[in-house]
Design a protein around this nucleic acid. Structure first.
Lengths: 263, 263
DNA sequence: ATAAGTTGTTTCAAATAAGAAACGACGTTT
DNA sequence: AAACGTCGTTTCTTATTTGAAACAACTTAT
């Protein structure tokens, strides 16, 4: 992904790159920003920011309230057309629905974007208190069970490339401290065929997750069930794990994956 | 909105404008596009499209598969940060949850973007078969009950500006044919304080909708309940209408609206 | 098989956008 | 009240980006 882009940098359109970076400055905690604030953050001349904002305002990607700017409605167009065009979400939704109904817990489908996992589909059965996670939510891949599933395809050196730092950011006592221990965990999950955690990212939530593969055999998503308790009874666990795995395999088949028979 | 932008056009950054328009070329039915295809659609030199795509690819807004381009995961960042930063969705979610639980049907919150309504929040109670509408879905404002609510603030001349054509696009036999008849319907809804339809956009679905106002008194959203049948019993209707209206008023109050007392 | 048409990429001169400087308005500080 | 700083906007020249032209690889048509 980074090698492919090499050489292309000679062709970047600065106006576009800056405009998009400007849009990305907005987030939950910076819902409204002023022009000078943006100029400082981006280390760009005021004039340039002024012009970028003018362009974005005309196109509806930002709206102006006094001298504050907020994200505009047009940004929604992009994200949702993306999701709608993902066959993964289309095919995954019914699978999630059925799984959720069978086990009675929330089920999610997540993909990986660099070091983050991104929720692309989610089903919450009635009665279950909806978690704060919604479609589009991002969480750190190395600190979540779903993320570990999505890292199974990476070799240790690829993993090192993705996490060049020595010490991984910790989120709980279970978070792996180093790339090596992360790799070990991931490889164990891979052998087992699923991942299980009791209070890995959030201590009061347990997750069962399994990989979803496409026609090329590559892991393209992780399918997971979220159980709102810190421990799962052994009696319940085993059938739930097999249901999650079956659902993930079913979705993989829908995506053209024909499971390896060579063992 | 269009007057405010006047004069700003002198400051547009072409690279940014074109890049964003390129991203908007992608949609449900054009999930994958090639460079020459994009050049033809946008009437731009091949070279320029090549450079825009290079920029977008490096930034993760498009991904390349062979010589086809698809939307990349980065576009999700924008849309969801937008939703997350909207106080409307934050405040609206619990209101929708309660309303949905009370009446037992799906409830939605929609905003208007020019001639479209956009779903920004949605709650489906368990057991109800989830409709195809999801957050981010767009429907034509003039042909939906929720849309009519969102047009209540517009005068006839503003409505004409938004719909310059003589004949409005029809979606069912109930769709207003002209701007005048649309205005009439909208004004009636306004007087009534809510809008009701049985099979307006989709014939097997009925909708009850009411306006949500912010601190300035402007209509910023429409709150609606979706009933999956073509007709609603009169006995059920009246309490349901008042519950929807109450919820919309509650959300309006949360947004700082103090209802007019002057009559 | 050959020619004509596509397409991805590169180069380079000419048109254009970017940023420094400046203006006017506003707010703050001394 | 005066001086200073900040901000939104405008102007203008320089530096940059753009798009025509060209190249190479490839596909399609004859």
């Amino acid at each position: 992904m980074s090698e492919k882009s090499e050489g292309l940098e000679r062709y970047v359109v600065p106006g576009l790159e800056r405009g998009l970076k400007l849009l990305l400055e907005f987030n939950r905690h910076n819902a409204a920003l002023t022009a000078p604030e943006l100029a400082k953050r981006m280390e760009l001349p005021r004039t340039t920011v002024f012009r970028l904002l003018a362009t974005l305002e005309i196109m509806g990607f930002v709206t102006r309230h006094g001298n504050e700017y907020k994200l505009g409605m047009s940004v929604l167009r992009l994200g949702f057309e993306y999701l709608a065009s993902l066959e993964l979400t289309e095919l995954g939704q019914p699978v999630l629905n059925r799984l959720s109904q069978e086990i009675g817990y929330s089920c999610n489908l997540v993909v990986r974007d660099e070091r983050s996992i991104v929720y692309v589909a989610k089903v919450t059965p009635p009665g279950i208190l909806a978690s704060t996670v919604t479609v589009g939510t991002r969480l750190p891949a190395h600190a979540t069970v779903l993320g570990r599933i999505l890292l199974e395809d990476l070799s240790l050196s690829e993993l090192r490339e993705l996490y060049p730092e020595n010490q991984l950011e910790g989120y709980s006592s279970n978070t792996p401290q180093t790339v090596e221990s992360l790799h070990d965990m991931v490889q164990q999950d891979l052998k087992r065929g699923y991942a299980l955690s009791e209070g890995f990212y959030e201590s009061s939530i347990s997750t069962i997750a399994a990989p979803v593969r496409d026609g090329t055999g590559k892991i393209v998503a992780a399918l997971g069930a979220t159980i709102p308790s810190s421990h799962i009874d052994d009696e319940q666990l085993s059938p739930m794990v097999s249901k999650v795995r079956t659902s993930a395999e079913e979705l993989s088949r829908l995506l053209g994956y024909t499971r390896a028979r060579g063992y």
